[in-house]
Design a protein around this nucleic acid. Structure first.
Lengths: 115, 115
DNA sequence: CGTATTCTCAACCTATCAGTTTATAAGCCA
DNA sequence: TGGCTTATAAACTGATAGGTTGAGAATACG
């Protein structure tokens, strides 16, 4: 039973799919409208839509020959929810610590102290 | 010039790598310590660490034979930042709208009205 | 009916990925 | 020095991803 977030992150790893999502955030669109925005074939876009739908990031409905695509806010939110697990890491004094460690990257192997 | 967020999402698509990150969120660890937590070879874990490092999600430093791994909060935060672009979608009345549309998924193809 | 429009399915190609096993590098210690 | 520990590199394998082309399904319209 694979974690559904696997598919969400995998879907978002492709820039075309993120662009499709960004477009859908401004309103529903048909597969054809979306395909027109990209320099790849309509079939390739259709496959991207399949990936997004399987990940739960969009839903598709039929209207005559057209397929309307709609973003699923709840699933986009699951990414924010995942990231929020780590929120404490970049809050408060962690900002400064992170900057410091970033600069010292390849030296000073001393492990970090626990908060 | 690929968007660096590509690599971040791709790295997070693997459950082993997310587990490694979760472990590192509790404190630094060596490659060996991390490898002990998973039912795959140490070499496979090392490759996962390469992916995480290339994505900028961790940094590695040397100490004698050991390699310490440390999470990079700023890069984890980039995921939260990406998701926050869509925050308005799941706020306020959008929650209710989303639920409604979810239930009606395969019918009523009428496109959504713009907010 | 026949045709045009819209979209997906199927087959194929190449590249990349996650894992393995084998071999090697780097540093401690006796 | 030689051996032990820790970790990576390299080469291989099977599976999956993203793209293509070609064909076909579904629906509107003349």
């Amino acid at each position: 039973m694979p974690d559904p977030i696997d598919g969400v992150f995998a879907a978002l790893a492709d820039p075309t799919r993120r662009a499709i999502l960004a477009r859908l955030a401004t309103g529903d669109a048909t597969a054809g409208e979306l395909a027109a925005d990209f320099p790849i074939s309509a079939q390739a876009v259709s496959k991207h839509l399949n990936v997004l739908e399987t990940a739960g990031l969009i839903v598709r409905t039929r209207e005559a020959q057209r397929r309307w695509c709609r973003i699923v806010p709840a699933q986009v939110r699951s990414v924010a929810d995942w990231a929020s697990q780590y929120e404490r890491l970049w809050e408060e004094r962690y900002d400064a610590l992170d900057d410091y460690l970033g600069r010292l990257q390849q030296q000073q192997p001393k492990p970090q102290e626990e908060p």
